[in-house]
Design a protein around this nucleic acid. Structure first.
Ligand SMILES: [Mn+2]
Ligand SMILES: [Mn+2]
Ligand SMILES: [Zn+2]
Ligand SMILES: [Zn+2]
Lengths: 142, 142
DNA sequence: TTATTGAACGATAATCAGTATAAAACGACC
DNA sequence: GGTCGTTTTATACTGATTATCGTTCAATAA
């Protein structure tokens, strides 16, 4: 995908990150995945383009991207790291059973009420909300 | 604490769990802790009463309690399991930086709007919400 | 009360995700 | 080409959790 190719070069420049082939490919794999994937699964995807890449490099760069804000970390209740390439403000719907994550839109938070309940000093400038329930599949199993 | 002593026997009976000394003490340690503690720290507490207890027993029983609904699992973004003995419906405020968890009360969710955004089949009968931000301490560090 | 038996426990090995380390490769610059 | 700081790779390591298995316990039937 050419789009994320250019996108990465811009983001890297903005954050003072060197553009390497490995970084480029890792980033593109996350963006192309359109979901909330684990380092393992990103690694699998990246290896198709760079068979010699090391798992450590994938981990290192995912961490780096998260620290710089190129990616968002999403690991609610899950036992392993998940990353999200979608930086537009949005919330998540998480299945308590299988830990799957779906995006959810909409203004369903009353921030006035919420602020009143906040302990002193808690900073909510970029609130992320995760709503837990049962996904369709797990509900069917019951 | 006598209260949780009786409480556990009732809960165990209701869920068909055998009442053992170890289970009793593990459960009481969680309830007495009044927070969101790790298996390690529960283990430390329990050892003061049963020095010979195995870490595996603590893990096994915490898992069991969570599965039966005697405890609530709370491990958002944190790398290790946290348990919550407070089963009253309540939500959590989580620090994105240090992963600390605080309880938060209040009706700040507009469930009408939220329901409209839910994907088909998603079950929200017992919604748990986790709101991410920066706790006071981490904000101070900045 | 005692014997029986499946469940639970304890010790420890194994697993698995993630991190640390150090040597090799890279790449910008001279 | 030689130098130097950065990145990648290979691999060793850590820490949390789970699996295994022999031993012990607790419910209950005789
Ligand atoms: Mn998302
Ligand atoms: Mn709580
Ligand atoms: Zn599910
Ligand atoms: Zn914090």
């Amino acid at each position: 995908m050419r789009l994320s190719h250019e996108q990465f070069r811009e983001l890297a420049a903005k954050h003072g990150l060197a553009v390497t082939h490995q970084r480029q490919v890792v980033y593109e794999a996350v963006i192309a995945s359109h979901g909330h994937h684990s380092p393992e699964s990103i690694y699998a995807a990246v290896r198709r383009r760079i068979p010699s890449i090391s798992l450590a490099t994938v981990y290192n760069n995912l961490r780096l991207f998260i620290e710089c804000g190129l990616l968002r970390e999403v690991s609610p209740h899950a036992s392993t790291l998940r990353v999200d390439g979608n930086l537009k403000p949005h919330h998540h719907l998480v299945c308590s059973r299988c830990k799957s994550v779906q995006d959810i839109e909409g203004e369903f938070i009353d921030f006035n009420r919420l602020s009143r309940q906040l302990p002193d000093g808690f900073d909510l400038t970029q609130p992320l909300i995760e709503v837990f329930g049962l996904c369709r599949r797990c509900r069917a199993k019951n």
